[in-house]
Structures are given as C-alpha cells and as structure tokens.
Lab assay of single mutants.
Amino acid sequence: FDIYVVTADYLPLGAEQDAITLREGQYVEVLDAAHPLRWLVRTKPTKSSPSRQGWVSPAYLDRRL
C-alpha cells in the first residue's frame, strides 16, 4: 500500500459515515483511492492506539516516497 502523511488535522463532519479523525504528521496507508473525494486509509498502530481504518479527504494527504 502507498504511504501518505497527513498535512493538517482532519476532523470529519458528523454526517460522514466511516470517517476517522487524523492528526497532522500522522502516517497512513491508502487502501482505496478509486473515489476522487474520499479515500479509504488505515492508520499505523502506536503503543497507545491500535490501527484504525476509515474514509478521509485526499486533500489532507501528501504522498511519501
């Protein structure tokens, strides 16, 4: 999967189903980028939180090589 970094805090609107909150600087794996406005991502697990999966706007993501 492609690795992206979150460029700004992402707080989903209440109406968005299956969306997750992301923090600036967080790394995520993009699982599904087929839709231009919503990408399915999975967060990297940390010592304090397990990995999470949900939909985010790709405008908040920047690809890492």
Score class of each variant (00 low, 15 high):
Gln53Ala: 08
Leu22Ser: 00
Thr21Ala: 13
Asp62Glu: 15
Tyr27Lys: 06
Arg38Val: 05
Asp62His: 11
Val28Gly: 00
Ala19Trp: 14
Pro58Gln: 03
Phe1Ser: 08
Ala8Tyr: 07
Arg23Leu: 12
Val56Ile: 10
Tyr60Lys: 03
Gln53Pro: 02
Pro50Val: 08
Ala59Leu: 14
Ala34Glu: 10
His35Arg: 06
Pro45Ala: 14
Asp2Ser: 10
Val41Asn: 00
Thr46Arg: 05
Leu11Thr: 14
Trp55Cys: 04
Thr7Pro: 01
Leu11Asp: 12
Ile3Glu: 08
Lys47Cys: 12
Asp2Val: 11
Arg42Asp: 01
Ala59Tyr: 08
Gln53Asn: 05
Arg52Lys: 13
Glu16Val: 08
Arg63Tyr: 13
Glu24Gly: 07
Asp62Leu: 13
Thr43Lys: 02
Leu31Pro: 00
Gly14Trp: 12
Asp32Glu: 07
Leu22Ile: 04
Tyr4Phe: 10
Thr7Val: 14
Ala15Asn: 15
Leu22Thr: 01
Pro12Thr: 08
Leu22Ala: 01
His35Ile: 04
Gly54Lys: 01
Asp2Met: 13
Ile20Asn: 02
Arg64Gly: 10
Val28Asp: 00
Pro45Ser: 10
Val28His: 01
Ser48Tyr: 13
Tyr27Glu: 14
Ala34Pro: 04
Gln53Trp: 08
Gly14Cys: 12
Arg38Leu: 10
Trp39Val: 01
Thr43Ala: 04
Leu61Gln: 00
Arg42Phe: 02
Trp39Phe: 03
Ala59Cys: 10
Trp55Arg: 03
Ile20Glu: 03
Lys44Trp: 15
Val6Gly: 00
Leu61Met: 03
Arg64Ser: 13
Pro58Cys: 05
Ala19Tyr: 13
Thr46Tyr: 08
Ala59Met: 12
Gln26Tyr: 03
Ser48Trp: 13
Ala59His: 10
Ser57Leu: 05
Pro58Lys: 04
Val56Phe: 03
Thr43Arg: 02
Gln26Phe: 03
Tyr4Ile: 02
Arg64Glu: 11
Asp9Pro: 05
Thr21His: 13
Pro12Gln: 06
Ser49Cys: 13
Asp32Cys: 10
Ser49Thr: 12
Trp55Ala: 01
Ala8Thr: 09
Thr46Asp: 11
Thr46Cys: 09
Ser51Lys: 04
Ala15Tyr: 13
Gln53Met: 14
Val5Ile: 14
Arg42Cys: 04
Arg23Tyr: 15
Val30Gln: 01
Ala34Phe: 09
Trp55Gly: 01
Ser57Arg: 04
Asp18Pro: 06
Val56Asp: 00
Pro50Leu: 07
Asp2Ile: 11
Glu16Trp: 10
Gln26Val: 06
Gly54Phe: 11
Val30Asp: 00
Ala33His: 08
Ala33Phe: 09
Leu22Lys: 00
Asp2Gly: 12
Pro50Ala: 09
Val56Leu: 04
Ala59Lys: 11
Gly54Ile: 10
Glu29Lys: 05
Glu24Pro: 10
Val6Arg: 00
Gln17Ala: 13
Val28Gln: 00
Ser49Ala: 12
Ser48Glu: 14
Tyr60Cys: 05
Tyr10Cys: 05
Ala34Ile: 08
Leu61Thr: 00
Ser49Val: 11
Arg38His: 06
Arg64Trp: 15
Lys47Thr: 12
Val6Leu: 04
Lys47Asn: 13
Val30Ala: 02
Glu29Tyr: 14
Asp9Ala: 06
Ser57Val: 05
Glu24Gln: 15
Leu61Trp: 01
Thr21Ile: 13
Asp62Gly: 13
Tyr60Glu: 02
Ala8Trp: 05
Ser48Asp: 15
Thr43His: 03
Asp62Cys: 13
Pro36Ala: 08
Ala19Val: 08
Leu37Trp: 10
Leu40Ser: 01
Thr43Ile: 08
Arg38Asn: 04
Tyr10Gly: 03
Val56Arg: 00
Ser51Ala: 12
Pro50Cys: 07
Trp39Cys: 03
Ala15Glu: 14
Leu40Val: 02
Arg42Ile: 04
Pro50Ser: 07
Asp18Lys: 05
Ile20Phe: 14
Gly54Asn: 02
Gly14Leu: 13
Ala8His: 12
Arg38Asp: 01
Asp18Phe: 09
Leu13Pro: 12
Leu22Trp: 03
Ser49Asn: 11
Gly14Ala: 15
Lys47His: 12
Arg42Ser: 04
Val41Gln: 00
Phe1Lys: 08
Val28Trp: 01
Asp9Asn: 09
Glu29Leu: 10
Ile20Gly: 03
Phe1Glu: 07
Tyr27Leu: 15
Tyr4Gln: 02
Val5Gln: 07
Glu24Ala: 15
Ala34Gln: 13
Ala15Cys: 14
Leu13Gly: 13
Val56Ala: 05
Ser49Gln: 14
Tyr10Arg: 03
Arg52Glu: 12
Tyr4Thr: 02
Arg64Met: 14
Thr21Asp: 10
Gln53Tyr: 11
Leu11Cys: 13
Ala59Arg: 10
Ala19Arg: 08
Leu11Gly: 08
Pro12Trp: 07
Lys44Ile: 15
Tyr10Asp: 02
Arg52Pro: 02
Glu29Phe: 13
Arg64Tyr: 15
Phe1Thr: 08
Ile20Leu: 12
Asp2Ala: 14
His35Asn: 15
Ala59Asn: 10
Tyr10Thr: 05
Tyr60Thr: 03
Arg63Met: 11
His35Gln: 09
Arg42Val: 04
Thr7His: 04
Lys44Asn: 07
Val28Thr: 01
Gln26Arg: 03
Leu40Lys: 04
Arg64Gln: 13
Val28Ala: 01
Gly25Pro: 00
Glu29Gln: 10
Ser51Met: 10
Ala34Asn: 13
Ala33Ser: 14
Val30Asn: 00
His35Met: 07
Gln17Asn: 12
Ile20Ser: 02
Val41Gly: 00
Ala33Glu: 05
Asp32Gly: 02
Val5Arg: 12
Ser51Arg: 06
